[in-house]
Computed example of a mutant assay.
Amino acid sequence: MMQADIDQFFLFRLISKGTYAKVYLAKKKDTNKFYAIKKLKKKQIDQKKQAQYVMMEKTILNQEKHQFIVYPQYQFEQVNHFYFVSEYCVGGDLFSLFKAKGKFKEKHIQFYAILIIHALQFLHTQKIIYRDLKPKNILIDEKGYIKLTDFGLSKILQQEMTEQVQGTLEYLAPEILNQIGDGYDYKVDCWSLGCLLYELIAECPPFMSEQRDKLISLIKTTQPKFNFPISDELKDLIIRLLQKDPNQRPSLVEIKEFPFFQNVKDWESYLSYKVASPFLPIIQYEDIWRFDPGFTQSEQSGDAIDGSDKDNKIPGFFGNNSQQQ
């Protein structure tokens, strides 16, 4: 991996914010190439005892590569921060695309599902459980294809099952929440895929509550409701993916044989970008409207942009707010 430090980049604006990190749009000074820089504050990570997840992300992202996964081009650290510098995906994330376009057509859902299945299958062959599949972690590149990002909650499976409770609650499988029995395995990613497909057609997650305990109860004990237009084929796939018993849930290989994908003649063609994306980003690298506006439309403070660890304000950076064609 190439060497770099933060002084080699111009940081423009906050485009995403997670539990332990902030992500900025940046440009490398010597090449004028745009990147996304994830900045993690060491003190906060140490206080929350999450250093193992930073190290896990570094370990996973240094393994074998796949075209549907975001990998760092540079990694470095300062006294108070870790930095991961990755390619900048000009299409933003699937969450923002979904919000801009509204409910997806089923043929579009099929396209994204195929790409996600390819990415998850690759991770599973590397003995990695993703554990955090959700729209905000699915980026869109210049071809309109997806790239999974944010591997801090992923798990390298050294044995057949694991017991750690990690992930975003709305997308967590019941066996993760139960914390009893034999733990869980790769099937938790299949559950999250079911939640994602449901959200893309229903415009909301299958299980929702502002109360954490109630949400957990809904995930563990209730069935999703289908009070909206949906084909029998997609409904059947979602129902099977959201089986409470992971032994009744199909694997990624089995998913490919479902009627929802019966018109897909060549799964491998997606790996070589031979299938046209339903939404092709207009490539304007300084246009960041495709990320959550909660992060891109307000000036942020408290983070230095010059490599020092002093408080500073990020200069305003506004893109074209017209919607994607």
Rank of each mutant, 00 (worst) to 15 (best):
V54P: 00
G102Y: 06
N312Q: 14
N32L: 15
F84K: 01
G194A: 06
Y171Q: 09
E254V: 05
K256Y: 08
M208E: 14
P315H: 10
V264D: 08
F295S: 09
D311N: 13
F82S: 00
F111S: 07
A173H: 09
Y74L: 01
Q223F: 12
S209Q: 03
K313L: 13
K155M: 11
I6K: 00
I283Q: 07
I156P: 03
I15E: 04
F261L: 03
E87C: 01
D236R: 09
I314A: 03
Y24F: 15
D189Y: 06
I138P: 03
D132Y: 04
F84H: 03
K265L: 10
Y83A: 02
A26D: 02
D132K: 03
E299V: 15
T162M: 07
E233N: 11
K220Q: 15
D132S: 06
Y186M: 03
S251K: 01
L241E: 06
A4Q: 07
N263Q: 11
Y184Q: 01
A304W: 02
V90A: 09
R290M: 14
G181S: 03
Y186F: 07
K313R: 07
I176G: 05
E87Y: 00
Q284E: 15
S231E: 04
L196E: 04
K155N: 13
Y285H: 11
Q211R: 14
Q8G: 01
I15N: 02
H124A: 11
T149I: 04
K43N: 11
D266L: 05
K136Y: 00
T221L: 15
L11G: 00
K310G: 01
F34N: 12
Q284R: 13
K43I: 08
P229K: 06
T125N: 11
F295T: 09
Q164N: 13
Q262S: 14
N247I: 08
K187N: 07
Q158I: 12
Y35Q: 10
K38C: 01
L215D: 09
P72L: 03
P278I: 07
N247S: 14
L61H: 04
I176Q: 12
F279Y: 15
A113M: 06
L177Y: 02
K27D: 00
K105I: 02
Y273N: 11
K39Q: 13
I288P: 08
F261H: 01
Q297M: 11
I69N: 02
A36P: 01
G316A: 13
I239M: 12
D311Y: 09
L139H: 05
E210D: 14
Y184M: 01
T168R: 05
I314K: 00
I156G: 05
H124Y: 09
F279V: 13
I116C: 06
I314Q: 04
D309M: 02
Q323L: 13
I305F: 07
P229Q: 04
I15H: 05
L139V: 05
Y285G: 09
K48G: 03
